[in-house]
Design a protein around this nucleic acid. Structure first.
Lengths: 222, 222
DNA sequence: GCTTGTGAAACGTTTCACAGCA
DNA sequence: TGCTGTGAAACGTTTCACAAGC
């Protein structure tokens, strides 16, 4: 390993994002089909160069085998350990609307070790209902957020509420000692810098597409 | 304007992503409250420097007013024109599952000018049903994709199907002459380079969070 | 032969700093 | 004074190219 990653020597954020993709790719390989994979093969369908793949992995140590490549099982285990998905995370969801329901029933989270163990909303008509695959989770009032974070040992909060409500929910999550936030509300959140936040803007990628399609037509040479 | 953006002189992708955020921020200002905004004010809540904001905007011309700042209305209009959201886009949705339903009822798309005008699925139990706010849209079989793209003048396709189905859906979209794709399936799509694709991995941001939380605890100095 | 890991070079993006204007 | 627009410098990321190992 070169120098261990640290504050003064951080791993580039794009590299960490790519690790997720490498993992997805590796997990998609048929079990016995491929014992090893080269950096070139791994990057190919994702559109990355072999050098890019090797650099990304080398930030975390040397686990390739010259002349052979990377052993698939080994690499899967290693990337999971790096990302922290070799354990189970307890997650809560705030917002039991359409998006919240979709996230609750999304299989991809559990597959990666993220278990949604509590759901909150501030709509009296929803509180008390059960949601998700049976037995389901009882929708709790948002004023119980802080309390339940401690009780159920929750590390991560997902915000799926309208923009107006996002700030106050964030404060409640922080008060409860949440360790990280995934935000689907179109709003900027104010958090101390030791609490990581990732914001996903659903409309933004469509705007990016519109830009690229427009540029396409204005300048087909592009 | 410095040099007009073009293939040989492209605007950095991060700059275009930030335009969406500037727009969101500007649209959030109370109408009469602020007539102008400075680069510093605009960047502040988003966590960007004043220089960053000015550079991003200057890629597209000079519409600031020295000593004053940017006129809010003017800037909103300009950014919309740059992104291409000063018009209406016709969008189709493939996949009428949980995620598809959530996307269909998401208000943020229409607010930005993206109208979902057709929904497709391959599940016979869903085909023929109506979905979304009344009168709703009839769920159509995927083999009618190409045909409907032409009939309803659709520019953009949203893929919200399982990974296994994403490739063949993509081929059908391309065959119908789609101009851009927003992909929610955890799969890499193969498209010609003149068709922009944006992939949103729902599970990936959680993995990024897990990484940052883990690093936090291993190295609190970080 | 093929493939990794890695310094060095190339490239891209952000920040700096200041001239010019209101 | 306050602010923009912009070259130039600083910084970060990706690609190159090759020594070393299978």
């Amino acid at each position: 390993m070169p120098r261990p990653p640290s504050k003064s020597n951080p791993v580039p954020a794009p590299a960490i994002r790519r690790l997720s993709l490498y993992l997805r790719e590796l997990e998609g390989f048929p079990k016995k089909d491929r014992q090893t994979v080269s950096s070139k093969q791994l990057g190919k369908t994702l559109g990355y160069s072999d050098a890019q793949v090797r650099k990304d992995l080398a930030y975390f140590g040397q686990f390739g085998h010259p002349g052979v490549g990377y052993r698939v099982d080994e690499l899967i285990t290693t990337i999971r350990r790096i990302l922290g998905t070799d354990r189970t995370w307890n997650v809560l969801l705030v917002g039991a609307g359409n998006l919240g329901q979709a996230l609750l029933s999304y299989r991809g989270f559990a597959k990666k070790g993220f278990q949604i163990v509590a759901v909150f909303d501030n709509d009296p008509a929803k509180i008390g209902n059960r949601m998700g695959a049976s037995p389901g989770l009882e929708v709790l009032p948002v004023d119980r957020l802080a309390e339940v974070i401690g009780e159920r040992n929750i590390q991560v909060g997902i915000i799926a509420v309208p923009a107006e409500a996002a700030r106050s929910i964030t404060d409640a999550l922080l008060a409860g000692g949440i360790q990280g936030i995934l935000n689907f509300a179109p709003a900027s959140l104010n958090v101390p810098e030791n609490v990581p936040v990732l914001s996903v803007e659903l409309a933004s990628p469509l705007e990016q597409l519109a830009y690229h399609i427009g540029a396409q037509q204005a300048d087909p040479d592009r």
